[in-house]
Computed example of a mutant assay.
Amino acid sequence: MKVARVYLRVSTEGQDLSRQESIVQEAEEAGFYIAAVYREKASGMILNRPELQRMINDLQNDEVVIAENIDRISRLPHGEAIDLINKIKEKGAKISIPGIIDLSTISNATDGISKIVLDSIQEMLLKITLQIAHDEYNLRRDRIKKGISKAKELGKFKGRKPNTKKNKQIVELRKLGSSISKTAQLTNSSISQVKLIWAKYKKEISNDR
């Protein structure tokens, strides 16, 4: 029986991971034992994602990493993305991505020349899709920037509404002596967000004096 580890990721707290959960059942139906499922809400442009790094550390030889799409694993620039994939491969693990390297291909892998050819083709496809994932990220980001710029010109851009409840929780925890990293963990926020909210609070306090 093949052993697999499933990596699920979305970029923001407001997004839901449930749509990706189906790949766990699909892997089990394909005859894989799921050693662990790693769920993360973080940008694919960040290399040091806690759950991603934990998964890589947990990997054992001949295991399979399963993700819904290659961009769930990485939207990093091509060189960094390849380094990340190599870390997975150095642990003796394979990667399963629908349309590139699927579970049936791994389960039915053959030996000899045919396997070498298949591995080479999959390696090429993997590199191409990593580059596409990064390019799509940059394209979408540029479109968003242009959209915001246009909305500002028309006086229609108001920005995101602040999450006052979460901001208050951040401030209260910091006032109680909670560290920035611990506060971020307890409020399900990013470290940069905690720093920003705390800095704004201190500035407001200073201005009131």
Rank of each mutant, 00 (worst) to 15 (best):
K2R: 15
K2P: 15
V6M: 01
V10S: 05
V10F: 10
E13W: 13
E13V: 10
Q15K: 08
S18V: 15
Q20G: 12
E21N: 08
S22L: 09
I23G: 08
Q25S: 13
A30P: 04
G31M: 09
I34M: 12
Y38H: 15
Y38G: 11
R39L: 09
R39C: 13
S43T: 00
I46E: 11
N48V: 13
P50K: 06
P50S: 09
Q53K: 14
I66L: 06
I66G: 01
P77E: 02
D83C: 02
L84G: 01
I88C: 01
K89C: 05
I95Y: 00
G99W: 11
D102V: 03
D102L: 03
L103S: 03
T105R: 12
T110K: 07
S114G: 02
D119E: 00
I121C: 01
E123R: 00
M124G: 07
L125V: 11
I128H: 10
L130G: 11
L130I: 15
H134K: 05
H134A: 09
Y137A: 13
N138A: 05
L139T: 14
R140S: 15
R140D: 15
K145S: 03
K146Y: 10
G147V: 01
K150W: 07
A151N: 00
K152Y: 03
E153I: 02
G155W: 10
K158C: 09
K161C: 06
K161V: 02
P162G: 03
N167E: 15
K168N: 15
Q169P: 09
Q169K: 11
I170W: 11
R174I: 11
R174C: 07
R174F: 12
K175M: 15
L176V: 01
L176E: 07
S178D: 05
S178K: 10
K182I: 11
T183P: 04
T183W: 00
A184C: 07
A184V: 03
N188F: 06
S192I: 07
Q193T: 14
V194T: 00
L196R: 13
K202F: 08
E204D: 13
E204L: 13
